[in-house]
Simulated assay, not measured.
Amino acid sequence: MPRTEANGIELEYETFGDPRQPTLLLVAGLGSQLLSWRSGLCAHFAAHGFHVVRYDNRDSGLSTFLDRGPKPDLRAIVRGDPGSAPYLIADLARDAVGLLDALGVDRAHVAGASMGGMIAQQLAIDHPGRLRSLCSIMSRPGDGVSGAGTREAEAQLSTPRPADRAGAIEAGMGVWRVIGSPGYPEDEAGLRAHVAETYDRSHRVDGFGRQLAAILASPDRTAGLRGVTAPTLVLHGMADPLIDRSGGEATARAVPGAELLLLPGMGHDLPEPLWPDIADAVAANAAQAS
């Protein structure tokens, strides 16, 4: 896969479809690699006429890991002292802009899932001229109220990840059993293969805490979202245990004219049976862009 310098770091990325078509930038979530945007879903987007770009955020996958500084103090950040966070969601949004610059893309359709949705929201707030349309998926505006998860789901964020391959794969399976879509349970063998592929590509987990610190230390985006003018789709699973549907509802309320699409049976993932519906919805929202 290609890699490029962006915003002072290096980002690993992959593309699908015709580069002459409008770009759809896919932003991954907390601790997730670009593989979280499954190739089959990317193919659906490409079939809708997008040049699809998926990439690893900093501190994930094969992009730059910022592991030379002190560890963030998550407890202090939660108590209101964000000083130990090495970067914020706004910095991750600048990474996305840097990637677009490196690819020679002036304006792109942007879709982000979970933390990726937060990054996409911030990109729309801070860099409105770089977006054609916005899609925020299973995310929240950071108001500290909406989008709370269940205790069991949130416990997955603080559970240590084993370093060995077998243990890491089992832990990953456990995570998806908790946060996955109850209405669309994934085939056990297929899920295990995906978790194993992710581990084999990059099994580093030390960036997770820094990304989590960025989420916790970043300010509420609600006021900024009120100024977003790009066509906006907010997509959320009605059975999401990690970020409750209220996070999507709050995001949609904040953006003038945003469309809210709630999907029954969908948890905190993008199940394959819903890929055609998701691709159709993203394409319909993008079509509203001038």
Rank of each mutant, 00 (worst) to 15 (best):
D101P: 01
G183N: 14
D95F: 03
H268G: 00
P160N: 12
P22A: 12
R132V: 01
R140P: 02
R151T: 13
T23N: 10
G142D: 15
Y199V: 08
Y13L: 01
S114D: 13
H203L: 00
A284L: 04
F45S: 07
V78Y: 12
L157V: 04
H51P: 05
R245Y: 15
L30F: 15
H127K: 03
S146Q: 10
E170K: 02
G40A: 11
R140I: 07
G69C: 08
R130A: 08
S63R: 03
R68K: 14
W37Y: 12
L66T: 08
E272C: 00
M173L: 06
A196Y: 07
D240E: 11
D269P: 00
D91Q: 06
P219R: 08
R58C: 15
G183T: 13
G31D: 15
G147R: 11
A148P: 04
L191K: 03
R107K: 14
T251F: 03
L103P: 04
G265V: 11
A168W: 07
D269V: 02
P2N: 12
S63H: 07
S114I: 03
Y184F: 13
G183A: 09
I125D: 14
R132A: 01
S39H: 14
S114Y: 13
L34N: 06
Y199R: 06
T4Y: 04
L99A: 11
L235K: 05
T251G: 05
L74S: 03
V110T: 08
A189R: 06
A85C: 03
A217E: 09
P273A: 09
A6Q: 10
L260H: 02
R177V: 01
A43G: 11
R54C: 15
D67W: 13
G117H: 08
E10I: 01
P182M: 09
L274T: 11
T222L: 00
S63T: 02
V195Q: 06
M266D: 14
A196L: 01
I77A: 05
A43C: 05
R3T: 10
